[in-house]
Write a protein that binds this DNA or RNA. Structure first.
Lengths: 157, 157
DNA sequence: CACTAAACATTAGATGTCAAAGGCTATTAT
DNA sequence: ATAATAGCCTTTGACATCTAATGTTTAGTG
């Protein structure tokens, strides 16, 4: 019809995410890294994952994908992996000094990027954005039942 | 001094986008399609792209990626490609009857998904969301607005 | 103890994406 | 006309990612 329905919100979201994450990747590349490398380093530093499954979950990717990145990062000398002597199923991941260096450089780039990204947008609006994004995620997640997700969504934990 | 650990807005965006687009892909798969196939069909129907470059731009992917999908879709009998007799550089893309059928089925799935996605969120907030998403994209786009100082002053574009 | 189940991780195969390089076709300049 | 340039598309090579299948090690059970 003349006025097609409001443009699909999912499409707007996907497009914006593509633009932003592309720009972020460029910023990290300029600092000698990449998005997955940054996420792995960040998760290693901010959490203390006991095993790769937890690390993968923190990063937001599958274990198989994580294995891939850890292999590459180990080959670059950013980290080491050894079997845990107490439980030889577990691979203990540890940053090397070079890994720490890269972490610091990428953190600088990430902080700078975040400032650029939110430039000129009031904090209140960013909170609103966060709230709506969580609501959208909840709307399409497994529990497709009703909309009891009132108030503060609470962090998934 | 210690910067408040506001979680990076880009990360929230990326996570939400991943969840939503994953769910959308599932919905399309249940209807016998996929995200790229749906976007190609939609762009073919709503615009009248003169050539593949325009189609790729409408879909939001590179020409090389589009070639890949068109090959697959032609192999499935969803569309045909012929050289334009008036300009033999151009490949004219046309939907087959089967392509039309798939379009209708995927459209139903997409409409249903959009309703689920926006369920319970007031229109006003969705407009706000759209506005902020566009602002975020603009903030990191090529136009390197070097200094974000000057407050909410002139927003380029 | 032997068997089975669970936990942890890797490998294999598929898809979707991009950048760079190449191959036709048409247009323009000489 | 012939050569140079531009436009349109495909091919190639490289990633990141997922799912499914496979190993490897530990824990549980009769």
């Amino acid at each position: 019809m003349a006025a097609p329905p409001r443009s699909p919100i999912g499409l707007q979201l996907a497009r914006a995410s593509k633009v932003v994450s592309g720009a972020f990747d460029d910023a990290l590349a300029a600092a000698g890294g990449s998005l997955p490398v940054w996420l792995v380093l960040l998760s290693l530093k901010t959490r203390q994952p006991d095993n790769q499954r937890e690390l993968a979950e923190a990063v937001g990717i599958q274990e198989a994908t994580l294995t891939h990145h850890l292999n590459a990062m180990a080959a670059q000398g950013l980290l080491t992996r050894e079997r845990d002597p107490a439980n030889r199923r577990v691979h203990q991941v540890r940053l090397t000094g070079r890994g720490e260096d890269v972490f610091l450089r990428l953190r600088t780039a990430a902080v700078e990027f975040d400032r650029r990204l939110r430039g000129g947008i009031p904090d209140g609006e960013l909170e609103e954005l966060d709230r709506i994004l969580q609501r959208l995620s909840a709307n399409v997640s497994e529990q497709a039942n009703d909309t009891e997700q009132g108030g503060a969504g609470g962090l998934p934990r």
